[in-house]
Design a protein around this nucleic acid. Structure first.
Length: 250
DNA sequence: CAGTCTCGGGTGACTTGTCT
DNA sequence: AGACAAGTCACCCGAGACTG
């Protein structure tokens, strides 16, 4: 079964700043299971999260550390309300999860169904679970989503290596039926959390090239064009993304 | 002319998956 | 459980080309 991630487009206005690629995997693995849960508290076993996020490191406590970091970073996220005419971003806090309780079952080697949990090396992994409580204020992002949503395959998302590719993947998936998305340079920098020190040269070399390379398999005929101001020095004002729209079957 | 992009290179730090 | 190598990323530099 193909695990899908589906949520209201509004979530794409949140820039996952400071997230490492594997933290993004964990985040969207969790998001993929929040959908249409009436109950606001969802329990994940560590085993389930490992599988969903295709989490490979076996070193002790790494998953726990990464989950902790993911949650800490989630708490710092902000929600950009609007882009004004001057392209400034107005933000409010975004407390998607009001609670994130981690419970480690010390030497447990069995999960709830009685199955023994082992790594492929044969060593025993610590088990436990995480209780995640979705803030009711934001649960509408995942529940009863029938229109204005973004949907993509979790495993495709996980297969992407670069954090920029991951971010752009979800942003472009929102426009998979139209095949066009424009970013002003301000929005582009904000949404991809591009370091302020990056000049256009670095953006092209380290980010745009990477995006083309990693995203082309998932967006047919992906083309990225720069947009220039008609001023002295032809400043870059934005990036335009084009690709062949996907056919959406219902 | 000034301002900015283009293209190339270099360094060191952190992350990640694997190996012992 | 701890160490390691490759991959990824931030930051820095400079010469040359282009535009209004």
């Amino acid at each position: 079964m193909v695990e899908m991630v589906k949520y209201k487009n509004e979530l794409n206005r949140v820039a996952l700043e400071q997230f490492t690629p594997s933290e993004m995997n964990l985040f969207f693995a969790i998001v993929s299971r929040i959908r249409n849960k009436e109950d606001c508290v969802i329990r994940f076993s560590l085993k389930e999260i490992r599988e969903l996020a295709q989490y490979k490191p076996t070193a002790a406590n790494r998953l726990i550390e990464d989950l902790t970091h993911t949650y800490a970073k989630l708490l710092k996220l902000t929600y950009p309300h609007t882009y004004t005419k001057k392209d400034q971003v107005i933000i409010e806090s975004f407390n998607l999860f009001k609670n994130f309780e981690f419970c480690e079952e010390n030497e447990a080697t069995y999960d709830s169904s009685g199955e023994k949990i082992t790594a492929h090396t044969g060593t025993t992994l610590k088990d436990g679970y995480v209780d995640i409580a979705v803030n009711p204020h934001f649960s509408c992002l995942f529940n009863n989503v029938f229109s204005g949503f973004t949907q993509f395959s979790l495993s495709e998302f996980i297969s992407l290596k670069s954090k920029y590719a991951k971010n752009m993947f979800r942003l472009l998936k929102q426009f998979r039926s139209t095949g066009y998305r424009r970013f002003s340079i301000v929005e582009f920098r904000y949404m991809l959390s591009i370091p302020k020190s990056y000049q256009i040269g670095q953006i092209d070399q380290k980010i745009i090239q990477r995006l083309k390379q990693e995203l082309s398999p998932y967006f047919k005929n992906l083309t990225i064009r720069k947009e220039y101001a008609r001023t002295q020095g032809k400043k870059v004002t934005g990036y335009n993304f084009y690709f062949t729209p996907e056919k959406i079957y219902r």
